[in-house]
Simulated assay, not measured.
Amino acid sequence: MKKSKPTILVVNDDGITAPGIKVLIEVMQTIGNVVVVAPDGPQSGTGHAITIAKPLRLDKVDLYEGVEMYKCSGTPVDCVKLAVNKVFKGKKPDLCVSGINHGLNNSINVLYSGTMSAAVEGAIESIPSIGFSFDDFSYEADFSNCIKYIESITKQVLNHGLPLGTLLNVNFPRGEGIKGIKICRQANAKWAEEFDERTDPNRRKYYWLTGVFQNNDHGEDTDVWALDNGFVSVVPVQFDMTAHHAIPLLNTWDF
């Protein structure tokens, strides 16, 4: 008996017309039946935000032949929630993939990323999920060197599944000389943030967020190290944020 193709939900945070999602759709079409639910505009840096104070719009669009596609007025997480509840009507897809994001989501960036939050929401729904990001913010970014790794990682997840409550954060370095894949941990790094203060024509102050990425982790098993050295970084991520190692300490306190 011939096995049916898997159903794959494709989402992102750069918007439904972004070049990255087009590449991801094309790759997923070689693997399974694709359904796209993506924001109608850029939603970078929205993290795990959801829309609760205004109605959501979900409109069917026809951008790529043979692909069922919807644009959503909400956040990346809204897209996954609506996909599961309204598009799939509770019958969950076999896989959720998010991206390909224009820009890295390594280290601490995973907390702010709309791309990764969409994948996290997929995992919350017990759907095997992967977030893909590439070290190039350009609209003309060349994703061609990422394709074979996206295919390989996706097929491995479909073949083997993922532990419950776990998803993959995959980041690609820029350049042609990708050396392979490294399974990594998240680097201990953060943004040293500053706010550029300016004045508008009405003499009111406003601010632009700026900052420098600071890596405080010199281990050679991190996502930052892997990317700096030409490898694709693959980090298993979980949404259980319990600091389990702190529980014994708290149990010694006299409340």
Rank of each mutant, 00 (worst) to 15 (best):
K5D: 05
I8Y: 06
L9S: 09
V11W: 07
D14C: 15
G15K: 08
G20V: 02
V23G: 00
L24I: 07
N33S: 11
V34K: 00
S44G: 09
G47E: 05
T51G: 13
P55Q: 11
Y64C: 03
E68D: 09
K71T: 07
C72D: 13
C72S: 14
V77W: 03
K81H: 06
V84C: 15
V84W: 06
K89W: 03
G90N: 13
D94G: 11
C96V: 12
S98L: 01
H102C: 12
N105H: 07
A119F: 00
E121D: 07
E125M: 13
S126E: 15
S126Q: 09
S138H: 07
K148D: 05
T154H: 08
T166F: 05
T166G: 02
T166M: 11
F172G: 02
I181P: 04
A189T: 04
E194N: 14
F195Y: 09
R198F: 15
R198L: 14
R204Y: 12
W208R: 09
T210V: 09
V212C: 09
F213N: 02
H218I: 15
T222I: 10
W225M: 03
L227H: 04
G230I: 04
F231Y: 15
V232R: 00
V234I: 13
P236C: 04
V237N: 06
V237E: 15
Q238Y: 06
T242K: 02
T242L: 09
A243D: 08
W253S: 13
W253A: 14
